[in-house]
Design a binder for these strands. Sequence first.
DNA 1: CTCGTTCTTCTACAGAGCGTAGAACAAACC
DNA 2: GGTTTGTTCTACGCTCTGTAGAAGAACGAG
Lengths: 129, 129
Amino acid sequence: MATLGDLERAVMNVLWESDAELSANALRDRLVELPADDSGPGGSDRREIATTTMLTVLSRLESKGFVTRSRDRRPHLYRAVTSRADHTAELMHEVLGASPDREAALARFVGSVSPTEAETLRKLLASRG
Amino acid sequence: MATLGDLERAVMNVLWESDAELSANALRDRLVELPADDSGPGGSDRREIATTTMLTVLSRLESKGFVTRSRDRRPHLYRAVTSRADHTAELMHEVLGASPDREAALARFVGSVSPTEAETLRKLLASRG
DNA sequence: CTCGTTCTTCTACAGAGCGTAGAACAAACC
DNA sequence: GGTTTGTTCTACGCTCTGTAGAAGAACGAG
């Protein structure tokens, strides 16, 4: 699967969280008023982003298959192709698939999840047939 | 966590599979006689790699914390810091951690593993307390 | 101790990916 | 039709990675 850059990921997060079709400018607006994942001391809000930058990023995301675009209306509208949960699950499979010792990796993985999540996993597996 | 390039990953795979300390040249030798993950039609074996290339890659892997190096003997010897299983499990956590909807992602994940692996997971979770 | 060999470090470059955005072009609105 | 709004084309700089030569350091032979 194609990987995502920082801005690309931020854009996808906005699309994933507001499960809707959005224009480039709407996306930009929601993006700038976001924590921006900086966590550094001092200002942490994202710099203003040019409209063309948004459009470039969205075009690339379209090429990569992460978004679809409605071209029939004038501000083109963008929508995430998959849910973030699906995307995450796919990534987990990808990471795991690269490893010949899948079992051992799975063992380490379940050995290091929180008890709460272990319980969640048990339930999920129980209801699976 | 730092990411790995193709060659870096190939080197790590050799180190992981032969759980031992190896010199740059020994690594190179094992590398060239490997399938090289190409799967394309025609020749798929890896091109010869210069010794200095190996050393550069290994230095970078050391900086990234993936290998340690014994500097006391003359051909320096390199060893993987973590097992591949640990590395894979860490990556899975990283992928998952990026997602606020962890539960949903886990659900998709366990929903798409093979029945055999589902069984494996059940056992692992059962023996976990 | 000196010389050649072996090994390592330093430096460098090219290609790809990504953030960035201006310039130019197209559409829509008044 | 001209202004405003939106899109595409083109492009540049930065970082990462694969690549490796040139230069320096250590080591064994004699």
